[in-house]
Design a protein around this nucleic acid. Structure first.
Lengths: 231, 231
DNA sequence: TGCCGTGATCTGTGATCACAGTTAGACTTG
DNA sequence: CAAGTCTAACTGTGATCACAGATCACGGCA
């Protein structure tokens, strides 16, 4: 089994088309570029992605399993419309689980985690305090910060669950954020992020949980106050 | 739009073959009839289910998304082997989330919930104290009790998350339970269930959380002590 | 006796076709 | 002009075929 040492390359990623289609669609959802209620045609999506409908079918069936998409009784696929009650439920669950992850992070974070959390927090602060904030970029940086925190809990299963929650919340939250740049300027999220960062550095689990909870419910209250939800 | 009132039938379930295949496979996993490491051939499964491979593909791709199945780099599909570390992570997450659900149940349960929880608890107690306990049935009754509790939290999103966790834990936990009927006889689970039931009836959130945690970690400790896990 | 090449047979992935059901628009009819 | 009907173009679902890669057993060579 001795090979020439020159062959030290990684096992070259053999990503299937289905996975790439899933990643593409998931990104659209999580960043809010697909609005609730928007319909999605398998064939149209396949055309856009430049593949046949088979990979798209696989991607969509995964997203439907995650309840990030839904098939109507008419068999049409769309981004689910969320009632205010459902959104409140989702928010409560996010606060419980993401708060738990943040608390765990205070106990299991290592130096690398602190570094990436710090970098992510500063990047988002810089962007949102910029005179001409780039909203899509701010949404992306927000995601980066949150997941830097959750990754610090060192629980792959927990991170995966939270990712699925973001898939559901993304269309509602980030679509709205795109439409309302002023909310970013108020800096509520920025303050929460700083609180979380400090709590994790200090090892204060309760404070980290509260910081995340305040961030999530701040955004949720804003959405609910605008009253744009169904049902 | 006025119709003869005789047409009061439900919208006749148009379940797709893919959904039925998913339900079938999920049940096999959650009840531990598929062992970790066991391979699953799409064509063979399609033969057994009497359909073409298309519905099976959809079901499997969902389960892979849930990480209840995995596709190896060789493209073979199998039930994931779980390392002891992964199993500990899963157990910790289950305790946090299922414990949270039980605590929520103490606040949101209504009379129907109390009834179904009581019935489920008694049914499982009767079965496990029987002289000739039917293990597959005990596994099923255990599931029924737990989900009766979680449903009482009245949070569909939480229940769905827990269902996904059981999909991962089922092959490890229930396969083992089938092989070790004596664990059931020790009655640890039964005592925990009674504690949970009483706590929910009394509205004691902390006690309900602890009861669930004791039940989960009791089973997990037993699995870990047998040392049959990979890696 | 031990090892390596080779081919048959399996795997999942992707494309294409067929079909039933839905939808929307134009056309006809009262 | 309005209401009903019919057709044409979509929808997702399922089956079938084609293909590249993996696996494993058999047979020949060293």
């Amino acid at each position: 089994m001795n090979l020439p040492a020159a062959l030290n390359l990684e096992p070259l990623d053999r990503q299937t088309l289905g996975e790439r289609a899933y990643a593409k669609l998931a990104d659209l959802l999580i960043s809010g570029r697909l609005a609730p209620g928007e319909k999605l045609s398998l064939r149209a999506a396949a055309d856009v992605l430049g593949v046949s409908i088979m990979p798209v079918r696989e991607a969509v069936s995964r997203l439907v399993a995650d309840k990030a998409l839904e098939v109507m009784p008419n068999r049409a696929v769309r981004v689910p419309l969320m009632s205010a009650a459902q959104f409140r439920d989702l928010t409560k669950v996010r606060i419980a689980i993401e708060g738990h992850a943040a608390a765990q992070a205070t106990q299991h974070r290592d130096n690398n985690d602190l570094l990436s959390i710090g970098r992510a927090e500063e990047a988002m602060r810089a962007e949102s305090q910029s005179l001409t904030p780039d909203l899509p970029r701010a949404v992306e940086l927000n995601k980066t910060f949150h997941f830097a925190v959750y990754e610090a809990a060192h629980s792959p299963i927990l991170v995966e669950i939270i990712r699925a929650l973001w898939l559901k919340a993304g269309p509602v939250i980030n679509l709205d954020l795109r439409a309302n740049p002023d909310r970013l300027a108020k800096g509520h999220a920025i303050r929460c992020h700083a609180e979380v960062r400090n709590a994790i550095a200090a090892g204060d689990g309760a404070a980290a949980r509260e910081g995340i909870a305040a961030d999530i419910s701040g955004a949720a209250d804003f959405i609910l106050s605008r009253g744009g939800l169904a049902g």
